[in-house]
């Protein structure tokens, strides 16, 4: 018999290394002679979109177009350290370092423009599309490339996240900052004859602070859901006496396109005040609430609480048989 059930999972997750561990990101920004800005930072791109997000942040601060930011993030001889692309920390930590560094460069550019344009002050100066201009008199302007002609402007900056060590005795404290929150609801079917579980429908919400790039966030949510779906139902490395038995894709099954479903992704934007434009990390958080939601939905469908993953058909049948006795 096919039985259906609905389940919910919720989570919160602390961004960054946490627990007092120094969590530092660095960046350098250089106004080049051609008027473009080079941003050097060690935010490793692994497909999550770090290069896009860092470029967007620099564009926003400096009023430049994407093609006018040269991001150097893979040449280790030519960029400062920005820590690992781990702990869902790059957008928050390195994003902050890039934003702060570009803001300092922007102020330096304004100062230079003040001198070049013979102004009393740099108050009311704006940067847009490669020009600095007086907001109330836009014809009073100078191109960034003319500013950089005889003097290269270079800024170094860094950002250190505020984390404190927990009390080792009580485990109390505030080890992470900031936290992200998420919730996922799924509908599953359980075949009581074969033990097969299928996820039929999913609604997935993720607090992102501010989505620097909504499409990238959705991509992270889809990917996190898929990984968690595999974690819940398919993936078993099957360690026996210290040896991994399922060591190939023939028996270590990860979800295919036919295992995945279309998800109703909902981004919650509640800007975090210490974050770059309010943005928080979502890389790992998006995997967390999905497996509990699936397990709760299985319970709702067949009233059997499964506490071991992956929930393979044989495990479902075993638990169903146990519950009948």
């Amino acid at each position: 018999m096919i039985k259906e059930g609905i389940g919910l999972g919720t989570m919160f997750y602390g961004t960054g290394y946490g627990n007092g561990f120094p969590d530092v990101s660095k960046a350098e920004a250089v106004l080049r002679a051609d008027g473009k800005v080079a941003v050097h930072t060690g935010a490793t791109e692994v497909g999550q979109g770090a290069k896009t997000a860092m470029t967007q942040i620099a564009c926003e601060v400096l009023g430049l177009k994407v093609n006018d930011i040269i991001l150097i993030s893979e040449d280790t001889s030519n960029m400062p350290d920005s820590g690992t692309a781990a702990a869902s920390r790059q957008t928050y930590n390195t994003g902050n370092a890039v934003k702060k560094t570009c803001e300092d460069l922007r102020e330096k550019i304004k100062e230079e423009a003040k001198l070049k344009l013979n102004l009393n002050t740099d108050v009311g100066l704006k940067l847009k599309d490669g020009y600095v201009y007086v907001e109330t008199l836009p014809e009073k302007s100078i191109a960034l490339k003319d500013l950089a002609k005889d003097k290269s402007l270079k800024i170094k900056g860094s950002f250190t996240a505020q984390t404190t060590e927990m009390d080792p005795e009580t485990g109390q404290g505030a080890p992470y900052w900031p936290y992200t929150f998420g919730a996922c609801a799924v509908k599953v079917s359980v075949d009581t004859l074969t033990g097969e579980v299928n996820v039929l429908k999913a609604v997935f919400t993720q607090d992102v602070g501010r989505a620097i790039n909504p499409s990238l966030v959705e991509g992270q949510m889809d990917g996190g859901f898929s990984m968690a779906l595999g974690y819940a139902l398919l993936e078993d490395i099957n360690v026996d006496n210290g040896k991994i038995k399922n060591d190939s894709f023939t028996n270590y099954l990860i979800p295919t396109s036919l295992d995945m479903i279309d998800i109703d992704n909902i981004l919650i934007e509640d800007p975090e005040n210490t974050a770059p434009y309010g943005a928080k990390g979502v890389g790992e958080p998006v995997m967390i609430p999905v497996t509990p939601a699936i397990l709760n939905a299985i319970y709702d469908a067949v009233k059997v609480r499964i506490t071991e993953i992956p929930v393979t058909p044989s495990r479902v049948l075993k638990e169903l048989n146990k519950s009948k006795k």
């Binding site: 959705e218 889809d222 859901f225 898929s226 990984m227 990860i254 979800p255 396109s257």
Partner: peptide
């Protein structure tokens, strides 16, 4: 259809995207 697209790429594994944006 989306289902036909899913079937066509079912022999191609992807760990990052969850396939939906590929569909």
């Amino acid at each position: 259809t989306r289902e036909e697209a899913r079937k066509a790429i079912s022999g191609n594994l992807c760990r990052c995207t969850g396939y939906n944006k590929i569909v």
